[in-house]
């Protein structure tokens, strides 16, 4: 019964939709790494900040998460710019150890502030219920999953297009490849870095809002997702934006199939297994790029 094509299609579709959220989160993390060379261990906490903003808006002023989404992205963009200006900018040119320790400290600080403010209870924003029935394929896709997956994919592709075709996106790429040359060409490098971190934070915030309609979460959920993101990054290649997109979709797919054929607890461990396998066989990532590629 498991091998029927409708079941396979169902698993594939819901896996891809779940993977799109990983991709959105991982692409932001990868953008910061590609441009600044900084691995932002607080990326998961930025996502949780988005999730709690969505929860607060839903709980206290009865706003729909999809309405709040652009607001949250704007807020986190601002927060990201400030973080870059005050904190991360000081790390450029210093060793990896320094930036890892600082963002680790930031992650602990933010997570525990979250625990102080909201406690360790799990919250959720149950706005979308039920599913879409696709009669032609005989499939049911749960509504939150379809909506969150579609928006994640659209945002990720949108940012990719921005980086590739927009003037500012090109400036970001220039700074990532040759900061000195970019500076000589009249690009305000510090500004571009602020914008980069802002975009990554906004992507994390959007992922958080979408997370809030999909799953229940607590301030400690960020760490879990960060680890999955790293699996995605290692699979796709560090600094490789498209790699992270494909890696995210792949992780979602594999998790869905393992969850469908074995059990859900195993699906949770799949990210680590994939990470280990890729490190063993192809440490440069499946696509084999080690540095910023957009």
């Amino acid at each position: 019964m498991l091998w029927e094509s409708s079941v396979l299609l169902q698993l594939a579709l819901s896996g891809l939709l779940a993977g799109a959220l990983y991709a959105l989160l991982a692409c932001g993390l990868n953008l910061v790494f590609g441009v600044m060379g900084v691995i932002n261990l607080a990326h998961g906490e930025l996502m949780i900040a988005g999730a709690f903003l969505s929860w607060l808006a839903y709980r206290y002023i009865d706003l729909h998460p999809l309405v709040v989404l652009p607001l949250v992205m704007g807020l986190l963009y601002g927060f990201g710019v400030l973080l870059q200006r005050w904190l991360i900018e000081r790390l450029t040119g210093r060793d990896e150890l320094t930036s890892l320790l600082v963002t680790y400290g930031l992650s602990i600080l933010l997570m525990n502030l979250g625990l102080l403010l909201f406690s360790a209870d799990f919250r959720s924003v149950p706005v979308l219920q039920g599913g879409f029935y696709l009669s032609s394929l005989d499939l049911v896709i749960s509504k939150p999953r379809a909506v969150a997956g579609a928006i994640s994919l659209a945002l990720t592709l949108g940012i990719f297009g921005f980086l590739r075709y927009h003037r500012m996106g090109k400036a970001i790429r220039a700074v990532s490849e040759q900061p000195e040359v970019a500076m000589i060409c009249g690009i305000d490098v510090a500004k571009v870095r602020q914008m980069t971190f802002g975009i990554a934070a906004a992507m994390a915030g959007a992922a958080g809002v979408l997370l809030s309609i999909l799953y229940s979460f607590s301030p400690e959920t960020g760490g879990e997702f960060l680890l999955k993101c790293f699996a995605v990054l290692v699979i796709g290649g560090m600094g490789n934006f498209l790699g992270a997109l494909l890696g995210g979709l792949l992780l979602g797919l594999v998790e869905a199939f393992v969850g469908g054929f074995f059990n859900v607890q195993w699906a949770e461990a799949v990210a680590y297994l994939l990470l280990v396998l890729v490190l063993l066989l192809r440490p440069g990532g499946l696509l084999g790029q080690r540095h910023a590629v957009f």
Partner: peptide, 14 residues
Amino acid sequence: LHLALLGLLMILLV
């Protein structure tokens, strides 16, 4: 609070 302060201390020290 303890952990939050440790995180802050870590950033400041580095």
